[in-house]
Amino acid sequence: MEALLTEGGTILAAFWMTVRLTAVSALGSLVLGTVLTAMRVAPLGALRTAATAYVTVLRNTPLTLVLLFTGLGIGANLGLELSDDIATNNFWLAVIGLTAYTSAFVCEALRSGLNTVSVGQAEAARSLGLGFVRTLALITLPQAFRAVVAPLGSILIALTKNTTIALVVGVSEASVRMRELIETYGDQVIEIFLGFAAGFVLLCLPMGLLFGWLSRRMAVAR
């Protein structure tokens, strides 16, 4: 217990980093995932092919490698400096990597959501004279979102846990802190693990409950 109590402040700071990474990446993934979904159902073959290729590659590559590519590829080789401060720079690199990876899953979920929207909806929209973009944005996507609230919740929980892999680009979040603590307080491994595990349970469990409740509330009655 001693380790958890004396290091309480730094542990909270590490979890705060986890929360920030999760929140920003979640927002990014939602936006990028929606754009990718739109691309995958677009009338243009080039857009469809590009989006499909993107999703296939990102979904099947380990996140460790995706983050390695953002760190070394974007950071060191493309020379993209997002901030002069290393910590901030790493944070944004991690956000880019997590967003790139997670948005592929968001896209898959949304696409299956689109499949649940009945054909008549889009047909009615078209007969009113709405074009592709407006049909998608006003009619079908909103319904698709309501259908996939639960899967999106699972993706958010997975994202929260995946932020631990941001240590690959040198972001010091909860898992890094846990490892450091285990190295310093070798005799308190179990307490330290349970403490950090409890932190993640506290983050993830309410998310699961919230999204479960939301998905029931928002379900499209048919």
């Binding site: 390695l68 760190g71 240590l167 040198g170």
Partner: peptide
């Protein structure tokens, strides 16, 4: 400023 990498190669 400190950057932590996983391997020396990186």
């Amino acid at each position: 400023q400190l950057q932590e990498e996983r391997t020396y190669s990186s």
